[in-house]
């Protein structure tokens, strides 16, 4: 179980949230919604270890996260182009994370031709699938999905979530951050408003 305990956080003297606790169990999608500027993404980044909370702790199965190894919590960006090295080909971007197996690659519909391209030569949907593939390394047990399909058309959105839902059945836990209440109602077991 991925747990944030009594988290507080804010920018420049203003507080975004205080004493907030949130748990993401394995095999579950937890939805997180709320108006712009309420701190949804900040909370996601804290759980993924990208930001340090001003107080409180993040624990995985009751233990603090280990440094220096692959983090079992991975963060997925709303605009994946910012999460890639623009001067690397997709091939190198993926192999830096893990030697992706053909089955996972096929399930995310990433053909060989895509591997030779640079990030800016991919469409938004293709980029997000590459980002998901990169994050699904063995050992990753939780994903923080921050508005990952907000910029995608409904068909691409449904396909991507289908793949993630299969992974959840196999044991993955996901925190799905979204403005789209209909989407969260469809995919998430519980929805938390911030």
């Amino acid at each position: 179980m991925l747990e944030g305990r009594d988290l507080s956080f804010g920018y420049a003297g203003t507080s975004l949230f205080e004493q907030l606790s949130l748990a993401v169990p394995p095999r579950t999608i937890v939805g997180l919604t709320g108006r712009s500027g309420r701190g949804k993404s900040s909370l996601g980044r804290i759980l993924a270890g990208h930001l340090r909370p001003s107080s409180g702790t993040v624990v995985i199965d009751g233990q603090p996260r280990k440094c220096g190894a692959l983090d079992s919590v991975q963060y997925l960006h709303q605009t994946p182009i910012f999460a890639f090295n623009p001067r690397w080909r997709i091939e190198r971007i993926l192999s830096e994370a893990w030697p992706c197996d053909a089955d996972t690659r096929r399930s995310l519909e990433i053909p060989d031709a895509l591997l030779r391209r640079y990030p800016h030569e991919l469409s938004g949907g293709e980029l997000q699938r590459v980002a998901v593939l990169r994050a699904l390394a063995p050992g990753v047990r939780y994903l923080i999905a921050d508005e990952i399909t907000a910029a995608l058309d409904p068909i691409t959105q449904a396909r991507l979530w289908r793949v993630l839902q299969e992974r959840v059945a196999d044991g993955l836990g996901i925190l799905a951050i979204s403005h789209d209440r209909a989407l969260l109602q469809r995919i998430a077991g519980t929805v938390r408003a911030l």
Binding site: Q157, A158, R159, A182, L183
Partner: peptide, 17 residues
């Protein structure tokens, strides 16, 4: 039709595009 079916409030992608 595929687009309409793919909405989360509908079948969420039951039809193939």
């Amino acid at each position: 039709q595929a687009l309409w079916q793919a909405l989360p409030q509908n079948a969420f992608g039951a039809a193939n595009a």
